[in-house]
Nucleic acid binder design. Structure first.
Lengths: 350, 350
DNA sequence: CTGAAAGCGCTTACAG
DNA sequence: CTGAAAGCGCTTACAG
């Protein structure tokens, strides 16, 4: 069934059928009704490729998760507590707005080609990019394509600043710096003076922000950065577990630990528990992200809530906006990240 | 940049360019090389819509998650431990095979229309459907469209049996019945005679299978089905928590409990713990699915491992196979589900 | 208000 | 081995 068939059946031309489908105003109600009736009756659906080829939009947006340079088992990206909610909200929000979403994961530069293709082949109207920015070069390539693009968790200053206003581009971030400050000051207020950190991946905007806020806040309050209490991490639980175990065996413990995300905080708690270190009695812990699991473990984890839902929703609204925009626009939004206090912290020294 | 431009640049016709792109054999190596060189140089990508319109495939498969009739907060479908791994494996497997994947969630009949459209509008070559089969009518509608379709966790007997071999269709299941039998017999072997169940959603194939296996196995071993120990559930943690709390307050406890999935088992454990009932000392628990969390809680949950990864991978291979198949074919596969023994069960009566 | 016609960018018999 | 031409199913100036 093609528009031609509908036209014949309704006794009009293909042009008119097209006008009805596209909701043009210059069609008399009677004609419109007749055409719609036939369309309805035959369950006609215009071929999306023909429409797109003739200049219409694809009504599809891309969601691309970059996961390069991670361990082999990083294959489980969508089970990750960071990506899963993004997929969730992006799909739902886009669907609700009448868009399909095309998903592709980037594990290798080859995969990255596929997402460039998705744009070049005009499979999508616009895309959302989320992931580490280690491969910022590739991201820049994408930006330079000038297609509607939204970046989640990227450092604006690193993205071809000179071109920013020539693009249909938006960047969505969370206020990780402020959230971390709130967490560290909460600990300080509880009397902690020896505060450690499990760092996140440094090729990530949020990883750097959280670390910088940690360092700056300690310094601001005249507290020392003690090397033994600074654990290298990569946002993954395995590393955090190993590092926490090492700390536990090292003998000297901080009285509080800020973990750059919940996954690592929870693994560290497991490690401490196995080494007979009690949280929060001997060691207070704060995580970041506030994943579902945070409130389900014992003790319940105090954590900085990442506004991931808001970010994902905003990302979709932004791409759609960018797809509709005539002029190139660049914009950036940051959503606040607030501390959620639960049971994993105690006043120091008792 | 269109194929015409490439043709001019390479000094050949569009036909030849097309032949090169589609890897036809009747192009001399020299010509092919020349064309490829130009394509490479200009980073040309054929427009996917034009190709599709001219009869080529879309190289896109659909992944549709049905989540109708669930609570409002079911919005979090992709964070669900059942769907998340499916998304993961489907996307990865499809991407690795050179396919894009289009995702759409079905919360309402309206959404269901969108997925029918995805087929009718020829946006995808084939699709994978997963979710409750309460709305089997809608699924049948889809099946009758004759497009390549793979169903995960559906009761074959309910799907238009008469048409089965006229379709490009495949059904992928897990051997939940056998897995549940293994779990129940393990409990019986541990000496348990009072074994309860938290039921899953009965509009789900796996929900019914798990329940039936539970009942049959008890009966086979001459054990009674005691009503107080049969808790209604729906695979969601809230309900399980409530039911478990009710059981705890009821006074009379079974000595073992089979939960139709891990999410519910874990929530029940929380409820029991809060009511001072110790697992496994006072009550043994077995879950189903073997989600990541199962091995991370304490005590570690004994569970029947759902071969969800295998199922998801197989689903992708199947759709791709169906897309390539000339003749309609129907096939069905079931993957074994085996018991993984951890720490949440103890011998009865000590 | 409406139809005939051109065009979107490919692929694929067809003819040579 | 290769090009000219028709066709895939739409949309959209253009003319009336």
């Amino acid at each position: 069934m093609r528009s031609e068939d509908i036209a014949k059946l309704a006794g009009v031309s293909r042009s008119t059928v097209s006008r009805v489908i596209n909701n043009y105003s210059n069609v008399p109600e009677a004609t419109r009704a007749k055409v719609l009736q036939v369309i309805e009756q035959y369950q006609y659906e215009p071929n999306s490729f023909a429409r797109a080829l003739a200049g219409k939009r694809t009504d599809t947006i891309g969601l691309f998760a970059i996961s390069m340079n991670e361990k082999e088992n990083a294959t489980r990206i969508y089970q990750n507590s960071y990506f899963a909610p993004i997929v969730d909200l992006v799909v739902d929000t886009a669907n609700a707005r009448g868009f399909y979403v095309l998903i592709h994961t980037v594990y290798s530069p080859g995969d990255f080609q596929k997402i460039k293709q998705a744009f070049l082949q005009k499979r999508i109207d616009g895309g959302i990019l989320v992931g580490t920015q280690k491969d910022i070069e590739l991201v820049r390539e994408l930006v330079s394509q000038e297609a509607p693009l939204v970046l989640i968790d990227y450092d604006i200053s690193e993205i071809m600043a000179e071109r920013l206003n020539k693009n249909h581009l938006a960047v969505i971030n969370s206020m990780d710096y402020e959230g971390t400050v709130e967490a560290i000051e909460y600990l300080i207020q509880l009397g902690h003076r020896e505060i450690g950190i499990i760092k996140g991946r440094m090729n990530t905007f949020s990883g750097r922000e959280r670390n910088m806020a940690y360092e700056n806040t300690l310094q601001k309050h005249g507290l020392p950065l003690v090397e033994d209490f600074i654990l290298e991490g990569d946002f993954l639980k395995e590393t955090a577990y190993r590092e926490a175990a090492r700390l536990a065996l090292g003998g000297k413990l901080p009285t509080a630990l800020f973990s750059s995300n919940d996954d690592m905080a929870i693994s560290a708690m497991e490690a401490f528990s196995e080494h007979g270190i009690s949280v929060p009695d001997q060691l207070s812990i704060i995580g970041f992200d506030d994943v579902q699991l945070a409130a389900r473990i014992s003790p319940k984890l105090t954590s900085v809530k990442l506004p991931i839902d808001d970010m994902a929703k905003a990302a979709v609204e932004k791409v759609i906006g960018l797809c509709n925009a005539e002029e190139p626009t660049f914009s950036t939004v940051s959503f606040p990240a607030r501390l959620v206090i639960r049971d994993s912290c105690k006043p120091a020294g008792n």
